[in-house]
Computed example of a mutant assay.
Amino acid sequence: MDAVTAARMLDDREREVVQRLGRLREDDDSLRHDRADATADDEHDPEGSTLSGEWAQVDALRRVAEAERAEILAARERLASGVFGVCERCGGPIADARLEARPFARFCIACAL
């Protein structure tokens, strides 16, 4: 895979992650607002899931998105240093199809298993 294509894929993926992080921040802000307006005992809310449960889910999704963004930044460094698409374990090439699915992949399919 050429560097221009790799950079474009990383740009596209980072744009998606940044948008996802924005939505998650909005969800977090909304939950904080709802929690401030709610009673202290949301664990017994008959309406369904608790605010605490929803907050934990949003926080977990945010952490995953932030970790993916860090992986994208590391992939940009590998691209700049000329080792993008090279497996960190065996030194072989990472298949283009894998990089299309996970442009920040560090390992070839065999080594990722």
Rank of each mutant, 00 (worst) to 15 (best):
S81E: 13
R32C: 04
A74E: 09
E71W: 13
A97Y: 05
G48R: 06
D29T: 10
W55E: 13
R62V: 08
D27L: 11
M1G: 08
D12F: 10
P46V: 02
A112K: 07
E47H: 09
D42W: 04
T50D: 01
V58P: 01
G92E: 05
D2I: 06
E66V: 13
L113W: 11
D27Y: 07
R23E: 15
G85M: 01
A75N: 03
G85L: 01
G53D: 03
A70C: 07
L113Q: 15
V64E: 11
D45F: 01
V18T: 10
A67N: 08
T50W: 02
A3K: 12
Q57I: 13
S52Q: 14
L31I: 03
L79I: 06
G85E: 00
P46M: 02
G48S: 06
I72F: 00
A65M: 09
A110M: 09
R78W: 03
L73E: 14
G82S: 03
E43M: 11
E66F: 08
E68V: 15
R25D: 12
G22C: 03
R25M: 11
L24D: 02
G48Q: 05
E100V: 14
R69D: 03
A95S: 10
E68Q: 11
R23V: 14
Q57R: 13
A60K: 04
A65L: 09
L73W: 13
R63Y: 09
E47R: 12
G92Y: 02
H33I: 09
V64Y: 05
P103K: 01
E77F: 06
A70H: 07
S49G: 15
V64N: 10
D11V: 00
D28V: 11
Q19N: 08
I109L: 09
A65N: 08
T5R: 13
G82Q: 03
A80W: 03
R62D: 06
I109S: 06
D59T: 15
S81N: 12
I94F: 01
S30P: 07
L24Q: 02
P46Q: 01
E77C: 09
R23F: 12
W55A: 15
G92K: 04
R62T: 14
A97Q: 10
V64R: 13
R76I: 00
R63V: 13
I72W: 00
G53H: 03
G48H: 06
M1H: 06
R15I: 09
I109P: 01
A97K: 09
A75T: 07
G48K: 06
M1T: 09
A105T: 06
R32K: 08
T39A: 15
L21W: 05
L51W: 01
R35E: 10
E68T: 15
G82M: 04
A36N: 08
R8L: 12
W55Y: 11
D37F: 10
D2M: 08
Q19K: 11
G48A: 07
A6Y: 05
R102I: 13
A74M: 08
C90H: 02
R13G: 08
D41L: 10
D41A: 12
T50L: 02
Q57N: 10
M9W: 12
R78F: 04
I94T: 00
F104V: 07
G48T: 09
A105S: 04
S52H: 14
D12I: 11
E14K: 04
A110Q: 12
C108K: 00
